[in-house]
């Protein structure tokens, strides 16, 4: 526990120091890496901790992005308010999906969300009078300055804050319910856990952070297109990030996202082959090391003592 806090502190310090070292373009890459880190950790919270596999994270991010962008453009809403509205819009959509699909067990969520992502992409494309579709929506920037440093610190702040909230939720009794549902849904139900309610809750929280990441991205990057933001291969890359980092750890998701994003920039010379490598890494890690690549290394070095915890502990 203590070790974790110290580790997190050092990681944040390094994060804060990044703009001192990186030049403009690599700072941009760092911002994008943190954006993916937020998406990946929101996905990990849902998949790794409560066992629900959604392919809609990018689409929910897209809903956040477009909501926020359109509110600023058409209603002249203040940027920060729009950012929150974007996140809330994703949350509401997440709630609707949850109510519709999470009553059922089995692969329904995965099936529905993959189709839902496509629906969002098609709708944003079709309503081009409003969204400009594939032509790209020009979005006002968050700050007037050209410098990337303020964006970097904003994104870092959002990420750290979000991780803190997710971590708190996961350590609370709700987190234990999530895990109980993941391990043994029937047993959890028998023990009196309202399975559907907690499943929906996990989904809604995760949607909020996806939406938040998306709305920030919109006001950072300045141009939105549905195809590049939420195409299925992009969701694949996001999942590869989480899986490489370790599907059962938020820190793993962050590390995985940072690693993959930097590698994909660094390996540009390999062109499309770099995505082949990520795809291969994804399936091999799933097959042979289900806890990811980074998390097991961490465990070996840190040799963490496992704290036995029960629902009763959490309630106390």
């Amino acid at each position: 526990m203590k070790k974790n806090v110290i580790g997190a502190g050092i990681a944040i310090l390094i994060g804060v120091a990044v703009p001192l070292v990186f030049r403009s373009y690599w700072l941009h890459v760092a911002i994008i890496a943190l954006y993916y880190a937020l998406l990946a950790s929101s996905w990990t919270m849902l998949a790794g901790f409560s066992g629900q596999f959604s392919f809609a994270t990018m689409a929910l991010g897209g809903i956040g992005a477009y909501t926020s962008a359109l509110l600023v453009i058409n209603v002249q809403l203040p940027m920060w308010l729009a950012l929150i509205c974007g996140a809330l819009a994703a949350t509401v959509v997440g709630l609707l999906i949850g109510v519709l699909v999470l009553r059922m067990r089995g692969p329904y969520l995965a099936l529905f969300t993959i189709a839902f992502s496509e629906l969002v992409r098609i709708t944003l494309n079709a309503e081009y009078q409003l969204t400009r579709g594939d032509m790209g929506l020009t979005v006002p920037h968050l700050y007037t300055t050209v410098s990337k440093t303020p964006y970097y610190y904003t994104m870092l702040g959002l990420l750290v804050g979000s991780l803190l909230v997710m971590w708190t939720v996961l350590r609370s009794r709700y987190g234990l319910f999530f895990r109980a549902i993941r391990e043994q849904e029937e047993a959890a139900a028998v023990m009196g856990v309202n399975v559907v309610r907690y499943k929906i809750m996990a989904f809604v929280i995760s949607s909020f952070f996806a939406g938040l990441a998306g709305s920030f991205f919109a006001h950072y990057i300045g141009t939105l297109t549905p195809n590049s933001m939420m195409e299925i291969p992009r969701m694949g890359l996001l999942i590869a990030m989480s899986v490489i980092g370790g599907i059962e750890s938020l820190a793993g998701a962050v590390a995985g996202a940072v690693l993959v994003e930097f590698l994909q920039e660094y390996l540009r010379a390999l062109e499309m082959w770099r995505f082949v490598i990520f795809g291969l890494a994804l399936v091999l890690i799933l097959r042979f090391s289900q806890n990811g690549l980074i998390y097991p290394i961490y465990q070996r070095f840190a040799a963490r003592r496992v704290e036995p915890r029960t629902v009763a502990d959490a309630e106390a």
Binding site: A8, A251, V258, F262, A302
Partner: peptide, 15 residues
């Protein structure tokens, strides 16, 4: 977290 740090270090170097 240690691994995370190592990673940031490696990435920093690479960059």
């Amino acid at each position: 977290m240690k691994t995370f740090l190592t990673f940031m270090g490696v990435i920093g170097l690479v960059v």
